[in-house]
Structure formats: structure tokens, C-alpha cells
């Protein structure tokens, strides 16, 4: 026998991280400030790692001369066309695989066989098929986006509560209405999650494809800057890519807030 006297000790709490964007922004500022200080003080060699101020100046110069926009617009066009094409066909395929037995196994087989192939390894093949121009780059991005979209969409469709689909059937709703009003919105959270992944994949593939064969585009710009040991320009290009990633993530977040208001 032991005695248990006294107040009950607190043992809950924790395991509940909260988002504080101030903390995130402050961390980035501190890192950049440290970096700037390091180049000033001389322990970061500026040829290898130019200072943030130098990068900002280069970025400004590239902007006012229009060089940046020239490359960025070429990249954005490829990114948008490739991503939308991959997303459109990926969602259609994913819905079909999620809904019907005749499509499910064939799609699964093809996805399992082709998804693991690094899409970048296919760029030379695509150049043979579609030429060195836009076609091969868009195809690379589209294919890279396609497979994760199929998987995310199919998973989303699988997770739509069957009871809701039965409800739709029991009220005699047409199949198109069931797909549009029950299955697609029900799968939307998973599909939007997939967008986050595919947007990043699209940017990675964009840059890689542009490095293999392009005159224009951020990837080509970064590569040629590297070849000239112009690290200011090289990092300016990388900053642009990073900002592009942030903007895309922000857009998807906004889309989620609108489409998933009901949650």
C-alpha cells in the first residue's frame, strides 16, 4: 500500500504544433542576414556564394532589361500547358479507375509500370518524338504530372463515402450528377493535395527539361549562367524558381480555402 496525497500532476499538452507565419518569416530573415554578414565579413567567398544584396541587384537588372521576363514567360507557358494537360488527363484517368472495374486494373497496371521511371530519363526520347522545341518539354512535364494525379484522384474517389453514392442512386440522380456533385467534391481534398505534389514536380521537370535543350527559360538561363561562372545570375534564377514555388503553393492554398470551405 502506498499513499496518494496531493494535487494531480499535469501530464497532457504538447504534440500540437501551431502555424506561426511570423516565426517562419523571421527565420528566413535571420538566415539571409547571417548570409549577408558572412559575405561582408569575408568568410563566405562571393564567387561561390554571392551576397543577397548582389543577387537582389542582379535580379533588379534582369527585371528592368526585360531579360528575366523573357525567360520566365517561356517557362511559365511550358509549366501551365504541361501541368494543365497532365492534370486534365490524370484526373479523367483517375476518376475512371476509381469508378469502374473495366478501367481500374488496366490503369493500375500501367501506372505501376510507368510511374517509377524517372521522367527526365525520357527527355531524349521525347526530343526524338516531339522535336527539340516545346513539345518535348511539355510532354515531360505533362507525363510527370499525370501519374501522381491519377494516383491522388483514384485514392480520393475511393475515399468518397459509399453511402453518399448510394444516396444519390436512391434518389435516381443521373450518373453525371453523381460524379459532378458527389464524387468530384468528395475527392477534392485528395486531388488538391495531389496538386501540391504535382506543382513541385512540374517545376523540377521544367528546369531539368530546359537544361537539356532550350534557349529560353529559367532552366536554360541558370545553366548558361553556371557555364559562365556568373553565380550572381545563377542564384538570381534560383531565387525566381523559389518564388515561383511559393506563388504556386499560395495559389493552391487559396483554391483549397475556397473549395474546401465546408470542412
Amino acid at each position: 500500500m502506498r499513499r496518494l496525497d496531493g494535487s494531480v500532476p499535469f501530464r497532457g499538452g504538447g504534440f500540437h504544433p501551431r502555424e506561426r507565419w511570423i516565426a517562419g518569416a523571421a527565420t528566413l530573415c535571420v538566415l539571409i542576414a547571417f548570409w549577408q554578414f558572412g559575405t561582408w565579413a569575408g568568410f563566405l567567398p562571393t564567387l561561390f556564394l554571392p551576397s543577397p544584396v548582389a543577387i537582389a541587384v542582379t535580379l533588379w537588372r534582369l527585371t528592368v532589361t526585360g531579360v528575366l521576363w523573357q525567360h520566365l514567360s517561356a517557362s511559365l507557358a511550358r509549366l501551365l500547358i504541361g501541368w494543365f494537360a497532365g492534370t486534365f488527363f490524370g484526373m479523367a484517368t483517375g476518376i475512371a479507375a476509381g469508378l469502374w472495374s473495366v478501367t481500374r486494373s488496366p490503369v493500375m497496371a500501367v501506372v505501376s509500370a510507368l510511374f517509377p521511371i524517372p521522367k527526365i530519363a525520357l527527355v531524349p526520347l521525347f526530343i526524338i518524338w516531339f522535336g527539340i522545341g516545346e513539345g518535348s518539354k511539355i510532354a515531360t512535364i505533362g507525363l510527370g504530372v499525370f501519374f501522381p494525379t491519377v494516383i491522388a484522384t483514384m485514392g480520393g474517389v475511393d475515399n468518397v463515402p459509399r453511402g453518399l453514392i448510394r444516396m444519390g442512386q436512391s434518389f435516381g440522380l443521373p450518373t453525371t450528377t453523381i460524379i459532378r456533385s458527389i464524387i468530384l467534391p468528395g475527392a477534392a481534398p485528395a486531388i488538391l493535395n495531389g496538386f501540391r505534389v504535382t506543382a513541385s514536380i512540374a517545376i523540377v521537370l521544367l528546369v531539368a527539361a530546359e537544361m537539356i535543350g532550350a534557349e529560353q527559360g529559367i532552366g536554360a538561363f541558370v545553366l548558361s549562367a553556371g557555364n559562365l561562372y556568373d553565380t550572381d545570375a545563377l542564384l538570381a534564377g534560383i531565387v525566381v524558381l523559389s518564388v515561383l514555388g511559393l506563388v504556386v503553393a499560395g495559389l493552391i492554398g487559396a483554391l483549397e480555402r475556397v473549395l474546401l470551405r465546408w470542412r
Binding site: 453511402g163 453518399l164 444516396m167
Partner: peptide
């Protein structure tokens, strides 16, 4: 009458996004 045989479900089966 739009749907002669009509269910009321135990779990309500309301569409959460409407």
C-alpha cells in the same frame, strides 16, 4: 412524385459540402 421509393438513412447521408 419525382422518386417513388425514397430513403431516409440512419446516418442521414447529407452531402457535407452542400
Amino acid at each position: 412524385c419525382l422518386n417513388p421509393l425514397t430513403y431516409v438513412f440512419q446516418d442521414f447521408s447529407l452531402v457535407p459540402w452542400r
